[in-house]
Design a protein around this nucleic acid. Structure first.
Length: 608
DNA sequence: AGCACGCCGACT
DNA sequence: GTCGGCGTGCTC
């Protein structure tokens, strides 16, 4: 019986999201190995499709006559079997296609880059024995995980799962180069894993965090092992970094949310910093959150899992309470000095109370002061960063004022006195830390109707507090209650635990899971009917959905709630509905505009 | 998506 | 008789 090539065809059609068997012609006998890009005939001769050769089978699983592989595009084995398994599982969990996952996992091919890489790797098809890597000397000691007890190192070596409370301090990793302590911790963990001959994946929310991590790794002398995946880079550079992760040499992969899909043989560690950051939610189908992918990958491939953060996401808290993650704190404890101003009883509420002015004035004698504001630039209501800067300029006429916001972000400021007005998540790092931090606009933001404003605020405040110098005051203006208390006590887990308890009461995520179903009313109804075959809790809607289709057709949305234990059954049922609607739900070909397609999205954080 | 197969109306 | 409409179904 001849060997067959099992190929995933590159197509967005859900009904083609499975492996197709092809004969291997004698001319491709050597080239047809798992992981390579191929082209195959599909349906009729002459029509060629791109695809990935996923595996070689000993016999066909398809009863009909087989067509033959058309070509092997290149010998580069871009799809590792571990990544294929992960992509398949992620797609199945999200009722999506493996192709959509692989688009995140494998960057588009850049021929020049690939040729150069192939020339440097003469036998990419044959697995090589691991090269012995001698750790280069670095400025920061990588032997242990500084600031934590030996238990953390043991947990990482033992491939355990950890919710890690980051240390809210800055570290000077090279002369004049300051990074958050978390970056040093993750870098040290990654180097530790690499020295044991394994790879590490470190995923961050944005480029600012990526820079800190790269600086910490470079200071540790891990530059040679570093593969920085960067979505902002042009294609060839991205592909170059991706290719450098292939092969058997252990790498330290740093990148944005899609880095959780990076190829890594012998994975020793997968870590996220600040898993509550909304940038970890994937906006592209099949919308899998990087945290969930990391959990799946750790389960599949082993190695340690670390969710490091200054706050505790409600999702991570659920995993801690289940015993799935162990809660690890710094030893000895490190906390910023948070000063609540509370609500000014009797007085007219002011944006910046006198006590905050006083602390800022004192701090400006020694160094920079961070003023965190809610709104960017010239807010029409007069409280944007520019306006705030102008107001502060009048109050402190002799002080230099620096503005950092989404449009013009600064990454670093010096140690000299200055008022640094920054919008949330755009705060520069100050050399040595800020002499004081003022957190404004809390009360105004908390008025917003959202399930997770409190969590978001706590995360923004905590991350800003971590930029303060040791002992410097962090002033939380005009906020009281449990949220303020959790910041003052630096017990964000207490807040997360309370939130989780509330959501259990309400049946809201992450206590339960949910899937949103959007599309034409008949499609949505059919999908809901399919979901009801699975053991779901209930269905909300369908209701008319705001986003109307370009064709002018009505679009409805329904939300299905279900328990974690039944996720697989719900996904299978909804996947069936997606395939059926793709096959039958289309319009007569020709003049009609494209009909709205049925969309299924799991665990959308903004669904409710 | 494409492309073939298949079963009913007006045409040389 | 049969050319061709586009509804339905499949893609190794």
């Amino acid at each position: 019986m001849a060997r067959v090539a099992r190929v995933l065809v590159d197509s967005p059609l859900p009904q083609l999201d499975r492996l197709f068997d092809y004969l291997i012609p004698a001319s491709l006998e050597d080239a047809a190995v798992p992981g390579v890009r191929v082209t195959v005939p599909l349906r009729s001769a002459g029509r060629l499709a791109a695809g990935l050769l996923v595996e070689i089978g000993e016999s066909a699983s398809f009863a009909g006559p087989l067509a033959a592989l058309e070509s092997v595009v290149s010998p580069a084995r871009v799809l590792q079997s571990e990544v294929w398994t992960l992509a398949r599982r992620v797609a199945d969990r999200q009722a999506g296609s493996a192709n959509d996952v692989l688009r995140l996992a494998i960057p588009p091919r850049a021929v020049r880059v690939e040729k150069a890489w192939l020339a440097a790797h003469p036998h990419p098809a044959a697995p090589r024995s691991p090269e012995s890597t001698s750790p280069a000397p670095g400025r920061v000691d990588s032997g242990d995980l500084e600031g934590y007890s030996a238990g953390l190192a043991t947990a990482i070596d033992g491939g355990e799962r950890v919710a890690l409370r980051a240390i809210p301090r800055l570290v000077e990793v090279a002369p004049g180069q300051w990074v958050g302590h978390w970056a040093v911790t993750l870098a040290q963990a990654a180097v530790r894993v690499r020295d044991a001959g394994k790879s590490a994946i470190l995923a961050v929310a944005d480029y600012r965090d990526q820079e800190q991590l790269v600086a910490a790794l470079t200071a540790l002398g891990a530059g040679d092992s570093l593969a920085a995946l960067d979505a902002r880079q042009p294609n060839p550079a991205r592909y170059q970094a991706f290719l450098s992760c292939l092969g058997e040499t252990p790498r330290i992969v740093v990148g944005p949310r899609s880095a959780v899909y990076a190829p890594a043989a012998r994975l020793g560690l997968i870590a996220l910093f600040d898993d509550g950051d909304p940038l970890f939610t994937e906006p592209l189908a099949p919308y899998a959150h990087a945290r969930d992918v990391a959990l799946m990958r750790q389960e599949q491939q082993g190695g340690a899992l670390v969710l490091a953060a200054h706050t505790r996401s409600v999702e991570a808290q659920r995993l801690v309470e289940l015993g799935w993650l162990q809660d690890v704190s710094p030893s000895p404890a490190v906390t910023p000095k948070v000063v609540p101003t509370g609500l000014q009883h009797g007085e007219r509420p002011t944006r910046i109370p006198s006590s905050a002015w006083k602390l800022a004035r004192e701090a400006l004698a020694t160094g920079p002061v961070l003023v965190q504001v809610a709104r960017p630039g010239d807010d029409p209501e007069g409280q944007g960063s520019q306006r705030t800067a102008a107001d502060l300029g009048r109050a402190f006429p002799k002080v230099r004022i620096v503005v950092s916001d989404g449009e013009r972000p600064l990454t670093h400021v010096g140690a000299e006195p200055a008022l640094v007005v920054a919008t949330r998540a755009a705060e520069p790092i100050a050399a040595g830390g800020y002499a004081a931090v003022l957190l404004l606009d809390g009360q105004r933001t908390l008025h917003k109707e959202s399930l997770h404003v409190g969590d978001d605020c706590l995360r923004w405040w905590s991350n800003a507090a971590a930029f303060a110098a040791p002992g410097a005051p962090v002033v939380l203006v005009e906020v009281a209650g449990a949220l303020a208390q959790s910041l003052v006590l630096w017990r964000q887990d207490t807040w997360a635990a309370a939130q989780l308890a509330d959501r259990r009461q309400l049946g809201f995520p992450p206590a339960v899971r949910l899937a949103t179903i959007t599309g034409r009313p008949d499609q949505v109804r059919a999908a809901v009917a399919a979901a009801k075959e699975a053991p779901i809790r209930d269905v909300l809607g369908p209701e008319p959905h705001a986003a109307t289709h370009p064709g002018g057709e009505a679009v409805e949305r329904a939300i299905v709630r279900f328990d974690y234990a039944h996720g697989a059954e719900v996904a299978t049922a909804l996947r069936g509905a997606v395939v059926r609607s793709a096959q039958a739900g289309r319009r007569p070909a020709g003049r009609t505009r494209p009909a709205p397609t049925l969309r299924v999205k799991f665990d959308d954080p903004d669904a409710l």
